[in-house]
């Protein structure tokens, strides 16, 4: 068992936000005697991550995902608690640490918009002291896998959002960091581009054993990339484990989809005999039932026996629906 690359112990961040009444008088007063209110963003979070893992950090807006990521990357001092990443304390921001990590944000650009990305990459390689031949090698690899030859010589401002995101990734990876923090990397991209980036990240992670922590609003990112998820809600870590286990725990239901070969008159009455079974709105002419896991065998047997069933399928509920439910209810 290798040493964990990220060790987080009781990490807590409380923002002190100055309270200011509008108006000149009030702002002068607040200059002399400021009033603050404490807003907890992250409360007592502990976890470890092994080298090469891809972990999804999920939770609703304002849950504390970005704050956690910022503390791990060294952009923020925690209020209390400790974190060791690759043997360093992130918020000391030692150059040797900064060279080993990378942060890519979907909503902010690290590139100079007036010049072609290739020039930005070269300056970055100098800032990160990448030896020239190594730089050329990794750049060739990244350009080939991301298929972005054509973009390199256009100014960044003329690139599309998806093209720009590819460039952001190259900028973040060209010095071969060991740890990659991805904050909403697929934000605003179309579905095809999202899929391409996911494939790329998966391959890159396997070939370079880079440890990835990813936040995303798109559950598809998480299901495709992250065997392990951490769910943050109101600043607390409320789940840490496999995504499938989370889904099963959250949704003790299965969906049964039905298609009939002849019209069924009293289907509603038929369903009413099980109080625990719920009928959902029809989709594409299919009837959908929400059935408690334990009741599934009995219910399907009765359906097949009594009704002219042409087709019957049993499924897990979509992960989005499950997550929405937690976000709304806030409990596991």
């Amino acid at each position: 068992m290798p040493e964990p690359i990220i060790q987080v112990k009781h990490l807590t961040k409380v923002y002190r936000v100055p309270e200011r009444a509008p108006g000149l008088g009030a702002s002068v007063r607040s200059l002399l005697k400021p009033h603050y209110s404490d807003i907890p963003a992250v409360t007592d979070i502990s976890f470890t991550v092994e080298p090469g893992e891809i972990v999804g950090l999920i939770g609703p807006n304002g849950a504390g995902k970005t704050t956690t990521l910022k503390m791990l990357s060294g952009l923020l001092y925690p209020t209390s608690g400790d974190a060791q990443v690759a043997g360093y304390t992130p918020w000391q921001r030692q150059p040797d640490y900064l060279r080993r990590i990378s942060m890519v944000m979907g909503n902010r650009s690290a590139l100079n918009w007036d010049i072609p990305p290739l020039d930005s990459f070269r300056v970055l390689s100098q800032i990160y002291r990448v030896p020239p031949d190594q730089y050329r090698q990794i750049l060739d690899e990244l350009i080939a896998t991301l298929d972005m030859d054509a973009l390199l010589k256009k100014p960044v401002r003329n690139l599309s959002l998806g093209e720009r995101m590819k460039c952001e990734l190259v900028a973040g990876l060209l010095y071969q960091p060991d740890i990659l923090f991805l904050d909403e990397p697929t934000l605003g991209l179309d579905v095809a581009m999202q899929r391409r980036l996911r494939t790329f990240l998966k391959t890159f992670n396997q070939q370079h054993t880079v440890t990835v922590i990813l936040t995303s609003h798109y559950m598809a990112d998480v299901t495709a990339l992250c065997p392990r998820v951490m769910l943050i809600h109101h600043g607390s870590l409320i789940y840490d484990g496999a995504l499938q286990t989370l889904a099963a725990r959250l949704a003790p239901f299965k969906l049964v989809r039905l298609q009939f070969s002849a019209p069924v008159e009293n289907f509603d009455d038929f369903v009413a005999q099980w109080p625990a079974v719920e009928q959902l709105p029809m989709e594409n002419g299919l009837r959908i039932l929400r059935v408690p896991r334990a009741d599934v065998p009995q219910v399907t047997a009765r359906l097949l026996e009594s009704l002219p069933v042409a087709d019957l399928a049993v499924e897990d509920p979509p992960i989005e629906a499950v997550i929405d439910q937690i976000y709304a209810e806030g409990v596991l």
């Binding site: 990357s73 952009l75 900064l98 902010r108 690290a110």
Partner: peptide
């Protein structure tokens, strides 16, 4: 102002 200072802060210089 725009928040991109985070990137600058992460540079090992």
């Amino acid at each position: 102002w725009t928040g991109t200072y985070d990137f600058t802060l992460l540079r090992p210089v």
